[in-house]
Amino acid sequence: MVQPAAVLVRARGLTRRFGNRTAVEALSLEVARGEVVALLGPNGAGKTTTMRMLAGLLAPDEGTVEFEGVPAGAGVTPAMRRRIGLLTESPGLWDRLSVEANLLTYARLYELPDPRRRVADALSQFGLLDRAADQAATLSKGMKQKLAIARTLLHDPALVLLDEPTAGLDPAMARSVRDLVRDIRTEGRAVLIATHNLDEAERVADRIAVLQGRLVALDTAAALRRSLFGARVRVVLAGTTGDGAVAFAEAARHGGARQVEVSDGVLLCTVDNADADTPSIVASLVAAGARVRSVSDERVPLEEVYLKLVGEDPLAGPGGAPSADGSRHEEVRDDR
């Protein structure tokens, strides 16, 4: 559980409907200072709606938002918006204006002291100084995104909401954005990042929230793996191929594995506690005559965790969608 004093934004039971469609249902979420939470979910899962509610652009139909301990009432107030930075899905730049003028307008809208100085600092920080006088329209997609991020952080927001910050960026640019997110966290700000990029989520986020209309899971990536797949140990046997390894599966079970999958000289053992069970499994295998070449923790890809949470086949229609009581999804409690 996040320490109460550290919580920057707290959403309780947020629900938002558009006509008959419920985009977000009973969402409760906390983001602490110095924490990055990744918001994952399929298209239409309510990620952008959640971002917009937290940014004060949409008022929730039900539920409350508390920002820095202050209830936002029916929605986030303009005064609160001064402390929030939102990177929208599209960069949203004024194409005919220069890079500098784009930032300067926002610096003035936020009524920052010495806006020119602040903009010069941002241009320098984001490597945009040499493009300052160029029209935003002339920038590459990556540079536009950089400028949009610079705009998002211009007023030093305490809560940073990033909607698909690396979508369409080349790997180098995406990496620099991830580095930036880590820097933001180091500065003690709270970051909520909506993304489809699971690798990115795992790299930058302290906790992962899986959304599918309602909150399906919220925890660290490791805890989500543990909850859904248990701890897994991968044992590679030397000189054992094909069905030869099957003979040692029983030895692994005897050593403490709850479940063993065998494939071509490899035993994939599901255990309750990797630290306690691994030595006894290895000892049991060695006693049974196996030649153990390597032992490592098996890390289930986050993709598998995610697909298990949201329903494995996105093309299968509403099978993955939450039912009225949300019972078809495994709820993973935040146990931090």
Binding site: L57, R82, T88, G92
Partner: peptide, 14 residues
């Protein structure tokens, strides 16, 4: 249409 309204409305602009 230029998608500039959303970031604009996210500021304290009334």
């Amino acid at each position: 249409q230029a998608r500039t309204l959303e970031p604009l409305l996210a500021t304290p602009l009334t």
